[in-house]
Amino acid sequence: MDVSATDRQLLAALQDGLPLTARPYADIGAAVGLDEADVIARLAALRDAGVIKRMGLVVRHHENGYRANAMVTWNVPDALVSEIGRKLAAYPFVTLCYRRTRRPPVWPYNLFCMIHGKDRTTVEAAIRTLSAESGMAAYPRQVLFSRRRFKQRGAYFGTCAPSLKEAS
């Protein structure tokens, strides 16, 4: 779908989140000059078109006990990457799974998974589980545990000032 200028204004107004009020869509509408029904119709259309991936809340993993994370990347044949990606994404501990552009020779890997767990042992066990999937052991792999997090915020779109939250 085409995202109109009005839609963008609306999404920009929601950048810092939905108002925590009984009629949040009416309140956000008042801020951008739309009535409640129009806001609801626009947001529903944006959601149905996938422009809004979902409405809801975003948990900060670290504060919720998910203290360990690893990015695992594999170099798998291009012909198989979609099938393997779908398979790995089905595991509950895989929180993101993408095919990405390779950057050989520095980074020849094309399949990227994020794994979150309560601690490092849990994440290591999860990586072993993925590696035990048929054929996975044969593919070159890199496991990157995080040492420090400098920034975690939602992607920034629109015209509001971004809220940058520094965290250790």
Partner: peptide
């Protein structure tokens, strides 16, 4: 509403609202 507000203030939630699909936003 009060509980969501408290969890946002405490940093348990990073935000409450829409999550955008960058490419479909035209970004």
């Amino acid at each position: 509403i009060d509980r969501i507000a408290a969890m946002t203030e405490d940093g348990v939630l990073s935000r409450f609202g829409p999550l955008y699909h960058a490419e479909r936003m035209g970004g």
